[in-house]
Amino acid sequence: MIEAAGLSKRFGGQMAVDDASFTCAPGTVTGFLGPNGAGKSTTLRMICGLAHPTAGTATVLGGPYRRIANPARHVGVMLDASAQHSGRTGRETLRLSAETMGVDRSRVPEWLERVGLDPSAAKKRVGKYSLGMRQRLGLAQVLIGEPQVLILDEPANGLDPQGIIWMRDLLRGFAQGGGTVLLSSHLLHEVDAIADQLVLINRGRIVAQGAKAELLATSGSYVRSPDRSGLERALHAAGIQFSASGDGLLADGDGERVGAAAHSGGVALSELRGADGGGLEQLFLSLTSDAGEPGTAPPPPPPGTTAAGSGGQPPPPPPPPGALS
């Protein structure tokens, strides 16, 4: 169980994290999503007692992390897989962690093997490791304490496809065994595949949270027509909100309504389907599209709502390729 209540962190005049509140329950995998620099890492550091909150509190397993006598036996924390001493071998790194938390060091070879670091890799210095190998070593350090809670910052970074599948199974199994997992990522696909709960953060504020299925359920329909402006007029006339999505539109209504609107507007459709295929991506973009233009951004929906659909005004079209150069 992880609970953040009003967590805030100010760096200079900037609110890196602003009033973040969420709960991660046992038996679930919570994906902590946000663009780079949104405040994910800072929030996780505050939960683990490594950064002091400007305001708010965080508890893990019912109390502040720093009060846990031997935290690594209860909470596995990996905040940056690349933050390991490059001059030590993988085996030595894991042994130091095991000894610190009081795990018998005879278990070190077993865990190295379980995360897929063979004996020759274990003998190498961490400085020679790829990021994927460091992630595996980091997970070994986390798992060797046999915790009930996992807090992982970008654990999928640098893993190859097999590694990602391996980690996905591992985290799912961990949650099915009653464990609590909180993992951050900016890789939507990864979170989509692993998480059942979502917390979305943008510019330090939680912009949406809840069960993934609920958050994505209201994402409406994806609709496409050769006559795009005609389609837009038809949707507008039917009072259906929409936004641009690739070649087509993401409409805030089910297929039946959207199809009827197109029909009454006399617009031929080339595609109409539930938007759940690109749901998380769409949700993410709609909630984080204000990045870079703070003055004009609409206020984010309050936390807890099943936020979706960015309103009637579609965002301005992206500049044509080459316009930025």
Binding site: G62, R73, H74, G87, E92, L96, E99
Partner: peptide, 29 residues
């Protein structure tokens, strides 16, 4: 209880931490 669970493993004793730091002093190139 959760609080009981987090107290079940004693905090690392200072001699153990000294042993770990001693290793750290000598185990890098």
């Amino acid at each position: 209880s959760a609080a009981g669970a987090t107290a079940s493993s004693p905090r690392p004793a200072l001699p153990r931490l000294v042993a770990v730091e001693w290793r750290k002093m000598l185990d890098t190139r």
